[in-house]
Design a protein around this nucleic acid. Structure first.
Lengths: 164, 164
DNA sequence: GAAGATTGTTGTTGACGACAACAATTGCAG
DNA sequence: CTGCAATTGTTGTCGTCAACAACAATCTTC
């Protein structure tokens, strides 16, 4: 079988208690195949693992990368704005920024316009680091291409463009 | 250029500290657009939220649904086999089954062939319940179609079939 | 100026993945 | 057959992440 299983066959039905251990490779997923959510979840786990592994040397996780990227592209944003844009809760962003600030990639500048908020900026160290992260992220993206194909990856990005 | 953005345009660069609050809708993601992992993560969050909401009345989450489906399609499986097939750790499956067994959807039958393992089965109550869950899951799947389009959903399933 | 909203912060809860340890049981080497 | 390694289910801990709630400081609005 290729990959497009989707065979709605009740499969062998071990029937009695435990005829044989079942090889885990031959277990039918039945209705699960055909659910977009399941496929997407499994793919997302794989893709994140590859990202984490590829950026393992620099110890940057996907969420951290997204925060750095957004700040790098839009210096001076408030935490609220970054959180909203990335779909992160502002409570969660606090810890993320604590870590990134500790590592000297980001600095929180007290905003003069609104003294409640912080203007977020990359440090110069953060900018050069981000450049390196982007190179590694591009390498990761190549792994995705190797796994699902160049055209499929582009198709995927097109289909899901509305969620970014 | 198609989707492989990678446009290295610093965007408007608010420059000074905080020229204006930035509407969160006009914040550039820059390099983030073009990363499959980011789009997939956002989509996966959306799709899970819809699943949880659609199956909210019956209080079934995606992982629980996947476990019930696999057991329903392959009665008599061991916990190890289910865990391997779904990519769940067996330690985690213990709690999932505790919950599902408490709700009388699943029963653990002591296997005679291998007295270490349990043969997993749906109760009759579990079977009728699963039938209802599947109807609700189909409704959820229709929401996905409404969101990304019928053809795109099928394309997506085709692309990601290798991960199920 | 007072009331209500917003921003950053702290804390709690619950789902989830990764690991480590353990008892009971099985399988295998010798 | 015996003893040792491997497997299965279980318990526990740790770290990540989303969802909330509460709070002080500050802004906005009337």
């Amino acid at each position: 079988m290729t990959a497009t299983a989707a065979q709605t066959r009740p499969r062998k039905r071990s029937g009695n208690g435990t005829a044989r251990p079942a090889d885990a490779d031959e277990i039918g997923l039945d209705a699960l195949v055909g659910h977009a959510g399941y496929a997407v979840r499994r793919f997302q786990i794989w893709i994140f693992q590859d990202f984490i592994r590829t950026l393992g040397d620099v110890d940057i996780r996907p969420t951290q990368y997204s925060v750095l990227t957004v700040i790098g592209a839009n210096p001076g944003l408030s935490q609220m704005a970054v959180a909203k844009r990335l779909g992160i809760e502002r409570a969660r962003l606090v810890h993320l920024l604590d870590s990134l600030e500790q590592r000297k990639y980001v600095k929180r500048v007290k905003s003069k316009a609104d003294r409640r908020s912080h203007a977020l900026h990359l440090t110069s160290q953060g900018e050069t680091a981000l450049a390196k992260f982007k190179r590694l992220a591009a390498e990761h993206e190549r792994h995705v291409e190797d796994r699902i194909g160049k055209e499929n990856r582009e198709q995927l990005l097109r289909i899901l463009a509305g969620f970014t």
